[in-house]
Amino acid sequence: MVEATALAISLQTGIFVLFLVAVRRRNVAAAINAAGAFVLALLPAVAEFGLQIVLARSVAFGPVLPVWLGAAGFLHSLGMLGLYESTWWWDHLTHTVSAALVAALLYAGTIVALPVLLGVDGSGPAAPVTVASTFAIGVFWELIELVAREAGERFDIEPVLVHYGWRDTAADLGFDLVGALLILATDLRVFVPLVEQFPVATGAVLLGTGGVVFGGSVLMMVGLGSAMRA
């Protein structure tokens, strides 16, 4: 526990250092990405504190989530400073690590929430739901990158997220699936104790996330189609 906490703090510090490097280089996109990664890395600690005040009881997020968020954020922030362009496999690594985190949370959430939402055992549907949902979130992210590129070109500003072409998009989605399949192959249920503390809220978050991903993807595809025809 102590070692994991120290590792999480080290990764958070590393992300903040990368943010300072990006600011010094006047790399706006890298700075914004590092700032976002830093906020996400701190989110479990902030949520623990906030929920303890709101619910008046101790809420344990555990050591794994902060470390995983920190690792994913550090790898992405480092990539934004040049490794995405100079190291061909870096993008594959970051997508696999990030997608595995998303899949692990979805896997645990499905196992815990389906009995609450539908009154059925969530272990059976967990695998297909995890793969499909991870892929859908990957598509959602790739569409955000496309929108960022279009916005950058239209307003002549540096995009916060960079789109490297359709071949790269296909590879990204492929490694998103690799991350999800790694979770299923190892039957990794490390986040089940976390989401079991909030079974009803977990179900609501899963449904809300699904609505945002589906609705947002449709809106972005319509918008991109209109932009391309203009």
Rank of each mutant, 00 (worst) to 15 (best):
G208D: 10
G119V: 04
L40K: 03
G225L: 07
E196Q: 15
V59K: 01
H163R: 13
V129P: 02
A230W: 12
I137L: 14
G138E: 04
T202K: 00
A56I: 09
V54K: 00
V120L: 12
A136P: 13
F140C: 14
S226H: 11
L11S: 06
D187T: 06
Q197A: 08
A4D: 06
L65P: 05
D91I: 12
L105E: 07
L40M: 15
G79H: 07
T134P: 15
V28S: 08
P66D: 02
L182D: 10
P66V: 09
F135D: 12
I111E: 12
G82Y: 05
V59Y: 02
W166K: 07
T13D: 00
V147R: 01
V39G: 06
S217A: 15
L78Y: 05
M221F: 09
E158H: 09
A41M: 03
A72G: 11
P193M: 11
R25T: 08
W141L: 15
A34L: 12
T169G: 08
G210D: 12
L117G: 11
S86W: 01
V139K: 09
L182G: 12
A103V: 15
M1I: 12
W68H: 10
G203D: 07
V139W: 07
R154F: 12
Y107F: 15
A29L: 04
L143M: 07
R154C: 07
D176G: 04
G216E: 04
T94E: 08
L55K: 02
L20F: 08
Q12K: 00
R167C: 02
A37N: 10
P128M: 08
L182T: 13
V139P: 11
T134G: 13
V218Y: 04
P159T: 14
V200A: 14
G62Y: 03
L114Q: 05
D91E: 13
V46E: 01
V195A: 05
F198C: 14
S86H: 12
V28C: 00
L105W: 05
D156Y: 06
M220W: 00
T209V: 15
S98M: 11
L182A: 15
G208S: 10
A45V: 11
S77I: 07
G211C: 11
G203A: 13
P199W: 06
E142T: 12
G223M: 09
Q12G: 15
R229L: 14
V116A: 02
E145G: 03
A99M: 08
V59T: 11
A56T: 12
I15H: 01
A170G: 11
R149V: 06
A103N: 10
G174E: 04
I111F: 03
I144C: 08
F175Y: 13
L101Y: 04
L93H: 03
W90R: 05
G215H: 04
F74D: 06
L114V: 10
A35E: 02
A126E: 03
